[in-house]
Amino acid sequence: MAITVKFFARLREEVGRADDVVAFEPGLSVTDVWRSATHGRAMPESLLVAVNMAYARGDVELRDGDEVAFFPPVTGG
C-alpha cells in the first residue's frame, strides 16, 4: 500500500502533476508527504491540506492507504 497524493488548481500547475504516490512508512506525516512528493519544495503559507477528503493539519500522522490532497485557498461560489 501507499499514500495517494493529489494536487489541485495553481498548485497542480506549479508541481507539474495532478497525482502522485508516496511509499508508506509508520510515523509518516502530511508534511513528510509534501516534502517527498515535491522534492523538498517550501510549503506555501496559504496551503490547505485534506486527508481522506477532510481538512487536516500538516502534523497529522498518516495511515497506510490514506489520500492526501494539497491545494491553494478555495475560490468557489
Binding site: 491545494f71 478555495v74 475560490t75 461560489g77
Partner: peptide
C-alpha cells in the same frame, strides 16, 4: 453560501 465561499474546495481560473 458564506461557508461554501470560504471552505468548499472549488477553484476559479
Amino acid at each position: 453560501i458564506e461557508d461554501l465561499k470560504l471552505r468548499a474546495p472549488f477553484w476559479k481560473k
